Computed example of a mutant assay.
Amino acid sequence: MKNYIVRGLAGNKSIRLFAAITTDMVEKARKIHGTTPVATAALGRTMTAASIMGYMLKGEKDKVTLQIRGSNKIKSIVAVADSKGFVKGYISHPHIDVTLNEKGKLDVGGAVGKNGKMIIAKDLGLKEPYVGQSNLITGEIGEDLAAYYMYSEQQPSVVSLGVLLDVDGSVKASGGFIIQPLPDVDEETLIKLEEAIRDIPSTSSMVDEGMTAEEILRAVLKGFDVEIIEKNEIDFVCDCSIDKIEKALISIGEKELRSLIEEDGKAEIKCHFCNKEYLFDKEDLTGLLNEALNNK
């Protein structure tokens, strides 16, 4: 499995664990969107986080949307994942470039900015999705997600997300993990967890060294009984289709459809997530207008 995710337990089943290797998935996104290094890192971290969060969902048709609304050069990053961990994502400014930070690393926090929002929508098959949000803390995404869990869901979490790029800008290593103590965790286990996570190396460096997701969790949780209970392949998968685009066109209403037919005689729709183009000629649009009128 090139891109995959694991689910596990530790601390006598009182801590839940998730880790993902996403190198090829993020490289696929980089090629689709033509991202600069800092945009690749920002999008890659967001997609990795969304994939893990999707995998946490219980219902087969459940979905999660993770949106970063930045306050600096990157205005928006969106990633949507299903309960198997399959994910799609896009970034509003794929070609932005910023200088390296003081540590000589890609300045994702500087590109996103600290004054934005993290918005998480969970579609659990109910009438309305559950939507939670929190303010960005650093713009680095991992710390922001940990803060979201703490403030919006009262769930302490260890979140680590990393994307390492090669000299040519391609993705050399990418991955992440989320560790969450469950409500029945005892004080002793919590103290042990805090000590274990004090000096952990970056996730991308561990992936670059060839460590598996399972090995990363065991390295991070030294001294814990890490039990891996599930493993699943993940990937960048866009579920756009001609049917969905047609429904979207019908939903814009009779007036707008007539305007498209009379003024443009065609419509070109591009999917934000995979950049696939859908072309509709006058005949196609007239058929959709008739359908819209019949649905009244």
Results as ranks from 00 to 15, higher is better:
residue 35 T to N: 04
residue 258 R to K: 15
residue 105 K to Q: 08
residue 174 S to F: 09
residue 263 E to W: 08
residue 174 S to C: 11
residue 221 L to C: 07
residue 107 D to T: 01
residue 290 N to A: 08
residue 176 G to F: 09
residue 12 N to T: 12
residue 126 L to K: 13
residue 121 A to M: 09
residue 109 G to E: 06
residue 264 D to K: 13
residue 51 S to R: 00
residue 218 R to H: 01
residue 278 Y to C: 05
residue 58 K to P: 11
residue 289 L to W: 03
residue 148 Y to Q: 02
residue 9 L to Y: 10
residue 258 R to L: 13
residue 246 E to V: 02
residue 95 H to Y: 12
residue 219 A to G: 06
residue 281 D to H: 11
residue 192 K to E: 11
residue 271 C to M: 05
residue 26 V to N: 08
residue 188 E to M: 07
residue 156 P to L: 03
residue 152 S to F: 04
residue 66 L to I: 10
residue 101 N to T: 10
residue 284 D to W: 06
residue 191 I to N: 14
residue 130 Y to D: 15
residue 155 Q to V: 13
residue 64 V to P: 05
residue 86 F to I: 02
residue 19 A to Y: 01
residue 23 T to A: 01
residue 236 F to Y: 15
residue 118 M to V: 15
residue 101 N to H: 12
residue 168 D to F: 04
residue 83 S to Y: 06
residue 12 N to F: 14
residue 280 F to V: 07
residue 162 G to N: 04
residue 79 A to M: 08
residue 96 I to F: 03
residue 59 G to H: 02
residue 287 G to H: 10
residue 253 G to V: 01
residue 195 E to G: 08
residue 148 Y to D: 12
residue 94 P to R: 01
residue 269 I to P: 11
residue 98 V to D: 00
residue 76 S to H: 11
residue 109 G to Q: 04
residue 272 H to R: 11
residue 78 V to F: 09
residue 156 P to E: 13
residue 95 H to P: 05
residue 25 M to E: 05
residue 53 M to E: 01
residue 243 D to Q: 13
residue 154 Q to A: 14
residue 194 E to Y: 13
residue 23 T to I: 10
residue 250 I to S: 03
residue 23 T to L: 07
residue 275 N to Y: 12
residue 181 P to V: 07
